[in-house]
Amino acid sequence: MIENRPGLTFFSHFILWLGVLIVALPLWIAFVASTHSAEQLIATTVPLWPGDQFWTNYSNILTGPASEAVGISVSQLLLNSLIMALGITFGKIIISMTAAYAIVFFNFRFRMFSFWLIFMTLMLPVEVRIMPTFQVVADLELLNSYTGLTLPLIASATATFLFRQFFLTIPHELIEAARVDGAGPVRFFIDILAPLSRTNIAALFVIMFIYGWNQYLWPLLVTTDESYYTVVMSIQRMLAVGDDEVAWNVVMPTTVLAMLPPVLIVIFMQRQFVKGLVETEK
């Protein structure tokens, strides 16, 4: 039985809307600032209502060079970030699924030792191994390439662990039935395990896409050619102008556009994301 307490209901909704306001206010200010000219933003404090430079600011950065520090358009920056994020996402999912599949369904020497070695890499953040990784990428001549942006980041111990935990819940009767029907390891993986894992894949897709999209340090190290710059690292370059005035009419529209893809991914995949975290399909 749920008691009806108007005071408690009002208080909980007030806290909820207050939290929404705190989160949304910086986003609103960024959008408003993206619709004003540089002179207006420098001369006064940031206004609270949109200006009349929306189409001008956004069309300039999407069609022409973003700024003096970044000589390509923001549309190219967004494309580079999208390629990097999708490459990292699909790479992590494919490698993690196959690694978990081998660990759970195949018997070989040092199977669990291999899993714990993979799991131990969770204690090694990217920053710890970034210099040797950079040296390997440089020796392979993968600097200033999409392969160099994505390949070193596609392994994921977290995803391997999550897929392993899910695969352990697969009933042995299903495995035996597939074997009786003549399904080999590849067919069992593609026709049975992959469809059963779709909610887990969806949840990891959202997490890994945001992880890949928000990468800053790695693209900063491996790219010196502007044609491979990503949008997140380019925002920092737009701000590093020394004693000159920051072109906020360029930085703010770029920031708003940089936020859109992760937000859209979360919005359109939120149902699958929640199911992948709280449910297990069998």
Rank of each mutant, 00 (worst) to 15 (best):
6 P>L: 03
127 E>K: 12
84 M>S: 09
190 I>P: 02
80 N>M: 09
276 G>F: 01
44 T>V: 01
53 Q>R: 13
228 Y>T: 07
221 L>Q: 10
128 V>P: 06
210 I>M: 13
11 F>I: 14
205 F>R: 01
89 T>H: 04
120 M>E: 11
254 T>R: 02
171 P>F: 04
116 W>D: 10
127 E>F: 12
106 F>G: 03
212 G>M: 02
278 V>T: 15
54 F>D: 06
92 K>E: 09
104 V>K: 10
141 E>Y: 10
93 I>W: 01
64 G>N: 14
86 L>Q: 03
12 S>Y: 13
256 V>W: 07
76 Q>P: 04
60 N>E: 13
43 A>C: 00
207 I>D: 07
171 P>R: 07
121 T>W: 02
219 P>T: 01
83 I>R: 06
80 N>G: 07
266 V>E: 09
66 A>T: 15
137 V>T: 13
239 L>C: 06
94 I>E: 07
153 L>Q: 08
154 I>H: 02
87 G>C: 04
9 T>K: 15
129 R>P: 05
266 V>N: 10
118 I>Y: 00
60 N>S: 14
149 L>Y: 04
44 T>L: 00
155 A>I: 11
240 A>I: 13
3 E>W: 11
199 T>P: 03
34 S>R: 06
257 L>T: 03
137 V>N: 02
225 D>I: 03
54 F>I: 14
224 T>C: 04
167 F>L: 13
16 L>A: 13
91 G>W: 03
208 M>V: 00
258 A>Q: 05
168 L>D: 08
9 T>M: 12
159 A>T: 07
51 G>L: 09
258 A>G: 02
257 L>D: 05
76 Q>C: 03
179 R>W: 05
10 F>E: 04
26 P>Y: 10
11 F>P: 04
62 L>K: 11
93 I>Q: 01
26 P>K: 06
26 P>G: 10
238 M>G: 08
282 K>W: 14
163 F>M: 01
152 P>G: 11
180 V>S: 02
205 F>M: 14
281 E>S: 12
139 D>Y: 10
2 I>A: 10
185 P>I: 03
56 T>S: 14
5 R>G: 00
148 G>C: 05
209 F>L: 12
158 T>C: 04
160 T>C: 06
201 I>Y: 00
165 Q>H: 03
37 S>E: 08
130 I>D: 04
234 S>D: 06
17 W>I: 15
104 V>G: 02
112 M>E: 15
240 A>E: 15
230 T>E: 10
159 A>S: 14
144 N>T: 12
164 R>P: 02
